[in-house]
Simulated assay, not measured.
Amino acid sequence: MTAVRAMKLLSAFALTLALYPVGADAADPGVFPDRIVLGQAAPFDGPAKALGTGMREGLLAAFAEANAAGGVKGRRIELVTADDGYEPERSVAATRRLIEGDGVFALVGPVGTPTSKAAQPLAEAAGVPFVGPFTGASFLRDPKLSTVVNVRASYDEEAEAWVRHLTEDLGAARIAIFYQDDSFGQAGLAGVEKAMAKRGMELAARGTYARNTTAVKSALLDIRKAAPDAVVMVGAYAPSAEFIRLARKLKMETTFVNISFVGSDALARELGAEGAGVVVSQVVPVPTDSDIPMVASYRAALAAAAPDAKPGFVSLEGYAVGRLMVEALKAIEGEPTRAALLDAIRDKGAFDLGGLPLAYGPGDNQGSDKVFMTVIQPDGSFKAVDKLTPPAKS
């Protein structure tokens, strides 16, 4: 061995000792002396890209806010993202790359039901925390899933709010559903059927469309035949907007109610003036209400991290997920490990984000049960409402 090569090996060994002293426990993947690396698989292209982009903006705002204050016990939080196009097969590949290639500590803010259904088992098998998925699917609320931490209310809770408001506020008797023909749509459908069965009701009509398309005409014609009082919608913003636009052209006098996953701000942009009166249920407060402490903090953090970004429901949810991660990491005693993170969330139980209280415990991996009803205004903004009113006659 040459003297030069020996010196290089000695230097490398010394660096290793400096980072990981002899006798110290080996750090979990993604944990370094100066940083903790998290991963997000989400759509950053295609018709659902606004959802992935929004969640990423909110996460980055929360992490930049924490990093500016010194990080978590001296470690800054970093985020690595991978585009899955809102397709299950791509999400599996992206998630595997984040876990095995990038060696992330945890997965945060994954987007979608079909994608989460495909990717979450990889995280479970690897013991990687799966935190704050942007979906209210019931299967992720199964307490047997040891690595899953939900922030938002479930789709069942949103569906219950829809049917309660439609029947009590508007006296709706004929309710139809438009939904994405996959596990996301089926999750929403199951919630609606449960809420209606509770009231002795059945759906007046059903219409479906294929994921990542806007082919909605057949669904619209099937639903229109039933002359529904209301149409509840379980879809992404592009196809949902197309459905509403075409329904307006056909002079359908009905109430349209969308699920939170739709991407509220993108839906309002797509609809323009035709969005007035459309209802969207939300799982976070209105992002313009700075009287709510979490919203005020979010708006300041977003402005600092991404001055050109516009506040919205999706990025506010991403911010809430990021805030939970930061608070949970701070609650860990000793060095951060994946197991310690999950234990900290369960053991601490309550996290006050300043307007969206989260509560966890044995058998309960969902932090919030809150559902907020909002209505799109003529200028494209959103108004929180306690009671629905009939749509204006055209």
Rank of each mutant, 00 (worst) to 15 (best):
Asp34Asn: 12
Pro293Arg: 13
Pro390Phe: 13
Ala238Cys: 03
Asp369Gln: 12
Pro33Glu: 07
Ala227Trp: 08
Val231Ala: 06
Asp34Ser: 12
Pro129Asp: 07
Gly363Phe: 03
Ile177Gln: 14
Arg199Phe: 01
Asp352Ile: 11
Gly136Ile: 10
Asp84Ser: 01
Ala172Thr: 05
Gln186Met: 13
Gly235Tyr: 11
Glu57Ile: 07
Ser281Gln: 14
Pro378Gly: 05
Leu271Ala: 06
Gly361Ala: 08
Asp25Thr: 15
Phe139Met: 10
Arg338Asp: 03
Gly312Leu: 00
Val111Met: 01
Ala273His: 13
Leu38Met: 06
Tyr155Leu: 11
Asp386Met: 11
Val278Leu: 08
Tyr86Lys: 00
Ala153Glu: 03
Asp379Phe: 00
Phe313Lys: 00
Asn212Cys: 00
Ala339Phe: 04
Leu189Phe: 11
Ala18Thr: 02
Lys73Arg: 15
Ile223Val: 03
Gln366Phe: 08
Ala331Val: 03
Ser290Asn: 14
Thr81Cys: 01
Glu65His: 14
Leu356Phe: 08
Ala197Gln: 15
Ala236Cys: 06
Gly349Lys: 05
Phe178Pro: 05
Asn150Ile: 13
Glu317Asp: 01
Leu324Trp: 04
Val216Gly: 04
Arg56Ser: 10
Gly127Met: 01
Pro114Arg: 02
Ile77Glu: 08
Val262Pro: 03
Tyr20Pro: 02
Ala64Gln: 13
Val37Asp: 06
Ala328Thr: 09
Gly46Trp: 00
Thr2Arg: 13
Val283Met: 14
Gly127Val: 04
Tyr319Cys: 02
Asn212Asp: 02
Val284Phe: 11
Ala230Met: 05
Val314Asn: 00
Gly200Asp: 04
Ile292Arg: 09
Met373Ala: 09
Gly367Lys: 14
Asp142Gln: 11
Ala306Arg: 09
Gly380Met: 01
Gly188Val: 14
Leu98Thr: 03
Arg174Val: 04
Tyr20Asn: 12
Gly207Cys: 10
Ala339Thr: 15
Pro378Trp: 00
Arg152Met: 03
Val375Leu: 00
Lys225Val: 14
Glu65Tyr: 12
Gly354Met: 07
Gly70Trp: 08
Ala204Pro: 01
Ile376Met: 11
Ala236Met: 12
Ala187Phe: 05
Phe139Gln: 09
Pro29Thr: 09
Asp308Trp: 03
Ala195His: 01
Val216Ile: 04
Ser297Leu: 15
Ser138Arg: 15
Pro239Lys: 08
Val283His: 11
Ala48Leu: 00
Thr389Asn: 10
Glu317Cys: 03
Arg323Phe: 04
Pro88Ile: 10
His165Asn: 10
Ala153His: 09
Leu60Asp: 08
Leu189Ser: 07
Leu15Asn: 01
Met252Phe: 06
Ala6Thr: 14
Ala123Gln: 01
Thr389Gln: 12
Gly103Leu: 07
Leu353Val: 13
Val231Gln: 12
Gly312Ala: 02
Glu160Ile: 09
Ser11Ala: 15
Glu100Gln: 08
Ala161Arg: 15
Lys348Trp: 06
Thr115Asp: 03
Leu59Gln: 06
Ser368Ile: 12
Ala126Glu: 04
Lys330His: 08
Asn365Ile: 14
Gly235His: 09
Val192Asn: 10
Asp229Trp: 05
Ser264Thr: 13
Ser281Glu: 14
Gly188Trp: 11
Val131Phe: 00
